[in-house]
Each structure stands twice: as C-alpha cells, then as structure tokens.
Amino acid sequence: MESVQLQRTYLDLTTPHIADACMRLDIPVRCAPPSIRPLWADTHVVGRVAPVRHHGSVDVFLEAIEGSAPGDVLMVDNGGREDEACVGDLVALEAQRADLSGIAIWGLHRDTSELRTIRLPLFSQGALPTGPQRLDAACSQTLVSARCGLHTSTADDFLVGDDDGLIFIPLDRAADVAELATAIRDTERYQAARMRQGTTFRAQARFDEFLSTRKEQEDFTFRRHLRAIGGAIEE
C-alpha cells in the first residue's frame, strides 16, 4: 500500500484503535517511547517509513529525502540523544518540498518557531538550541533502518502518529489492521453515543451477566465476555 493510499485509509483512525487491532491480529505492538510527542496538538500523520540514522551531518537527511516517495515519513534515528538537536527548519522545509507527510525523531529538534510556521507534522523528544558538534562514520544501515526506542523500522513499515504517540505497522498488514481498527472505532463511537444518551456502559456490556458467569467460571475474563458480545473497549 503506497503512502498516499495509507493516508486515505487511516485518515480517521487513531493510534489506540490501531494498537487494539494489532493486538487482536497478533501483530507485535511497536510504539515509540512516550517521550516522543507532536510539536503541536491535533497532529495526525500517516506514511511509509523513510528511515535514516543521524551521524552528525545533514547530508544523510538529504540523501534519505532524495530516495523517498511522496507521502513518506522521515524516521530519524539519533539514538534518543538529549545533548544535541538533529533536525531544524531547513530539513523540515526540504522534506515538505519533497511532499513528505512528516518527520519523526528519536532525538531532539530545534528552530521550534520556524517549524510551527512550516507546519509539517513533526514528532520529537523535545527541543534544544545546540546542533550536532560531532561527525561519526556512516554505517551500512544508515538509510536502511531506523531505531526508535525498543523498536526498529524499515521501508517495509509505515507509521501513524497522533496526540497519543507513534505506532509502527508492517506494510503488508496495512489493510488487515485498517479493517479491524475501523470496526473497533465504530463500535466504541456507538457505545459512547449511547452513554451520552443515558445508557451506561455497564448496561451495554451486560456487566451483570459477566459477574454471574464469573461466579461459575473463575477464569472467565471481562475481555472474553466483551468479545463474546461484540464489545471493543478493552484489548
């Protein structure tokens, strides 16, 4: 699935919907560290991963952008360093001119005011005025994979980011995840609408039935009960 199609498919799906769908499909849930946040609220980004590992020079970003496709998201691996900012306004402008969907950084950014004006979705661990003061040697994985906390992503992955964080999904499971995430979203919206109209979730979930069954079956879980009745609030 190409990045532009991903954007259409995942436009109205949140990272919690997607995480729940991955769990049900036995797809490993790969989330970025919670310290990585969007630069502004109500951000939503979707795209194939364009991986790059930072070694101290901006040329690796330009090379990654050169090899990217419209709609991709630049995934910058700076090892979670907090002693330097590795992405600023010029890199963001270059990515925007290449029609990338956004930038995610396992590390820090700078030029915050300019980045807010550019308005390209950006996720990072925070801001720091100081740029890199080093120049390390590139490696064979520089443009092949990017780490982000405990997880590693490649161009065979895509990511979704919003106010709850970032999640990575295999491209070849994009359709499966979207289908189930959509069903979960619709169920939860229906449940929330009924609650606003006065029907408690306990009533919708037939909680009394669950308690009764659990008395007879000690290993009977609420998750199992919800699945049996079509609930989706818990995974």
Score class of each variant (00 low, 15 high):
residue 27 I to R: 02
residue 27 I to W: 05
residue 28 P to W: 02
residue 29 V to A: 11
residue 29 V to D: 03
residue 29 V to H: 01
residue 30 R to E: 14
residue 30 R to A: 12
residue 30 R to T: 04
residue 31 C to K: 09
residue 31 C to W: 10
residue 31 C to D: 14
residue 31 C to G: 08
residue 32 A to L: 07
residue 32 A to N: 02
residue 33 P to I: 07
residue 33 P to K: 09
residue 34 P to M: 13
residue 35 S to F: 11
residue 36 I to P: 03
residue 38 P to V: 03
residue 39 L to P: 01
residue 40 W to S: 14
residue 41 A to N: 07
residue 42 D to E: 02
residue 43 T to L: 06
residue 43 T to C: 00
residue 44 H to E: 08
residue 44 H to Q: 04
residue 44 H to L: 00
residue 46 V to W: 06
residue 47 G to H: 01
residue 48 R to M: 11
residue 49 V to A: 05
residue 50 A to G: 09
residue 50 A to C: 10
residue 50 A to Y: 06
residue 51 P to D: 01
residue 51 P to N: 00
residue 52 V to N: 01
residue 54 H to D: 13
residue 56 G to A: 07
residue 57 S to R: 14
residue 57 S to D: 13
residue 59 D to E: 10
residue 59 D to K: 04
residue 59 D to Y: 08
residue 61 F to K: 04
residue 61 F to C: 09
residue 62 L to T: 11
residue 62 L to I: 15
residue 64 A to P: 11
residue 64 A to W: 09
residue 64 A to T: 04
residue 66 E to Y: 02
residue 66 E to I: 10
residue 67 G to L: 15
residue 67 G to K: 01
residue 68 S to A: 15
residue 68 S to V: 15
residue 69 A to M: 14
residue 70 P to A: 15
residue 72 D to N: 12
residue 73 V to E: 05
residue 73 V to R: 05
residue 74 L to D: 10
residue 75 M to T: 11
residue 75 M to R: 13
residue 76 V to L: 07
